[in-house]
């Protein structure tokens, strides 16, 4: 994550970026928990809705790896044809989410250190 580029992109100061990143972490934690529960219940519609919602957030931070998984998950969940593939993708998503949250936390530390 390139903090300088992100600040230029959003034309914002450190305080706004910190609040956005913190909100992102809270939201991503909540969404992935919902997706995990929905996957256990085979609730594909909830997976689709939440994958779409999370996509919107990760696109701001240009997290390409997780964007690919979420796009695939959204399509798979809409098609409802391959429950095993969906479950597999949910597992990949959960692993990637941990990495993404760590990246954002590192970014947060970086901003606070400069301040």
């Amino acid at each position: 994550m390139n903090i300088k580029e992100l600040k230029n992109y959003l034309n914002c100061d450190d305080a706004f970026l910190i609040s956005l990143m913190q909100k992102f972490i809270d939201e991503v934690v909540e969404i992935t928990a919902t997706i995990k529960t929905a996957s256990n219940k085979k609730d594909w519609q909830t997976i689709k809705t939440n994958a779409h919602k999370m996509l919107s957030s990760v696109r701001i931070f240009e997290m390409k790896e997780i964007i690919i998984v979420l796009e695939k998950l959204e399509i798979e969940a809409e098609g409802k044809k391959n429950p095993d593939v969906i479950k597999q993708d949910v597992e990949i998503l959960l692993d990637l989410t941990e990495k993404v949250i760590r990246d954002v936390e590192i970014g947060l530390e970086e901003i606070k250190a400069v301040k």
Partner: peptide, 17 residues
Amino acid sequence: DDDSLFTQVIEHYLSSV
């Protein structure tokens, strides 16, 4: 919009318009 991160960004953009 149901995307609260997006609405926060737009709110921020609008604050200077």
